[in-house]
Design a protein around this nucleic acid. Structure first.
Lengths: 189, 189
DNA sequence: CTCAATTTTCAGTAATTTCTGAAAGTTTGA
DNA sequence: TCAAACTTTCAGAAATTACTGAAAATTGAG
């Protein structure tokens, strides 16, 4: 398969990036390829394009399916499965965030809650618990922001994306948040 | 060193989490230990607590230093180096975000910009470029939000954290953003 | 139902990453 | 300047993770 150099570098880059995150190189490359592909492609095409064994591609696709990141479809008169990514980048991002939350954030919060419930047996434990509480609150705060952003409708997001680098708008929005919370004072919720 | 079970599970959890991200288990555990520690601790104490070799701890600390995540200090009459984390969780988070941006986001944006500059030699390439542009815009948008949030002063953040789960406030803030951009219409910036 | 097409599984191998002990390097107080 | 105290480096061992080919399982057209 003749992969244009432009696509090549994109694919390689995401392979590298993947391995910096928990995702392995193969999976990163497969997703990158699907992402820029004009039409859905099948596992053999992927294997040939990337020079991986068919079985490796199969495992990679299974992994991506478990992350709900690929769409699967069939074409008439062809028994093979064809894969693609959602057309909307934002949807991809949202799914990724949801899965990461489920796999990483939730278990962490559960662990922290558990630790915070324990009766501290020493000053050291008391201090550790206080630190865990701070972390717990930070994570809750950040994830709640994230989920708010996630729930923005696609239309609003499209508009925001068109604004491009005109970040000042976004800055203002942060300002108003700041004022809002000031009004609320330091009261415990 | 007698590590309380409460701290133990925290440390082990972050070891696991670390390895899901690019960070290795050792580094995750070291940071978790520092994070909940009442006072700065030295490399030997870390090695003993976690059961790692001294050299492994040394490498882990070096890694953490390269991420600017640890504070280093000395005590009078003691030549050893003592390590700790910032007191403010938010500062830790901010540093982490900055470093990740520098190491992962910036190189990705550079690659995408490069690819977008190329003259497309085919429809396939044209399509790939369009996809890359979408991704570029998404990343820019998300990172600009992030950096805005990062720049909130600690005081505001403290207040927000105290609000805790009263996320409705944060939701409103998202609403106002939505209105703001509507006013702006679909105009290119 | 049968069988060819296709996908998945899995045991073994390859590659990579992590970890260690020993040795080299650095720092500082006397 | 020396030497003890401490830290870092690094080559190889250990552990983990990725990848493959062959075989098993599944699927669907006829």
């Amino acid at each position: 398969m003749n992969t244009p150099p432009l696509v090549q570098s994109f694919v390689l880059h995401f392979g590298e990036m993947g391995s910096r995150w928990g995702i392995n190189r193969t999976v990163g490359q497969i997703y990158a390829l699907l992402y820029v592909s004009e039409r859905p492609i099948n596992a053999d095409e992927i294997a040939e394009s990337l020079g991986f064994s068919r079985s490796n591609v199969s495992m990679g696709l299974k992994e991506l399916e478990s992350w709900r990141l690929v769409k699967l479809q069939h074409f008439p008169g062809d028994r093979r499965e064809y894969f693609s990514t959602p057309d909307d980048v934002w949807e991809i991002f949202r799914t990724l965030a949801e899965e990461r939350k489920k796999r990483e954030v939730e278990p962490t919060l559960t662990m922290l809650r558990g630790a915070m419930m324990e009766r501290p047996a020493s000053d050291a434990e008391k201090h550790a618990q206080a630190r865990m509480k701070e972390m717990y609150q930070l994570i809750e705060l950040v994830t709640s922001w994230f989920s708010d952003i996630q729930n923005l409708d696609v239309e609003t997001l499209q508009r925001l994306m068109k604004l491009g680098s005109k970040v000042t708008k976004v800055l203002q929005f942060t300002q108003s948040l700041s004022k809002m919370t000031s009004r609320n004072g330091g009261e415990e919720a």
